[in-house]
Design a protein around this nucleic acid. Structure first.
Lengths: 114, 114
DNA sequence: GCAGTACACAACCCATAGTTGTAATCTTCC
DNA sequence: GGAAGATTACAACTATGGGTTGTGTACTGC
């Protein structure tokens, strides 16, 4: 359920996002109330971030915490109850062709027939 | 971008998910190569998890790491292309009653008519 | 040249992650 | 009822590594 992400990888991501945000190590450091040397350790993976610090950094860099754990840009979607229900039902359909039909049906339901 | 989640909250979530998985503190502990007393500290929020441990726990409990950062029980689901397509189409349907019909249709598609 | 900024690296220190030990709690079974 | 077994709770100790200070280097612009 999602592969392990090493401290090194998360560190690199922090560095990347920090640079994208136009922040120096020192700037970021004071935003999370630490020294810039400590930020260096994070970025190089020398020390392992704990949850609170990671959240502080995420907030400082204006990104979601989940950003650091998704190695690829995987699709994480928040579902309503209704949508969740639909998905579960849809997944129970083993017949591939039938699923295709459902897709076509639902997809064209709003389009006026020519 | 996503509210802070305290160690306490994450701890409670771990406890909940662990129990749902039918695991004792000791079982979980050996899965992550620590003592069960340390698991206790996590669950009670006495010690702050670092990223690696959180990932190990997530893996042991068969959940995504992101699960622990969503304060409300929001459903985060990983979608296939097909499912993603279905959802988008479904959301475009404004008619509430019609959506209900789709749900019923898809939901009963496998059930044999009595 | 020098002053200022941004980053890298080493050595030290102490908070706290993680340990061991004991005890309370809740079963189940005879 | 209580013996035996698991599961959890709490306290005290240990030691790892998170976090600090200190120094050095590279790159600016004046």
């Amino acid at each position: 359920m999602g592969d392990m992400v090493s401290s090194r990888e998360i560190g690199l991501k922090i560095k990347l996002l920090r640079q994208q945000a136009g922040l120096s190590q020192e700037k970021l450091a004071e935003m999370i109330f630490l020294t810039f040397q400590q930020v260096q350790k994070y970025e190089s993976g020398q020390t392992t971030l704990n949850i609170l610090k990671l959240q502080q950094i995420a907030e400082a860099l204006q990104v979601s915490v989940t950003e650091f754990f998704s190695s690829e840009p995987t699709k994480h979607v928040r579902l309503s109850m209704e949508e969740d229900q639909l998905l579960h039902a849809f997944r129970r359909i083993k017949n591939t062709e039938l699923r295709g039909c459902i897709l076509k049906l639902v997809g064209n339901i709003n389009k006026r027939t020519k």
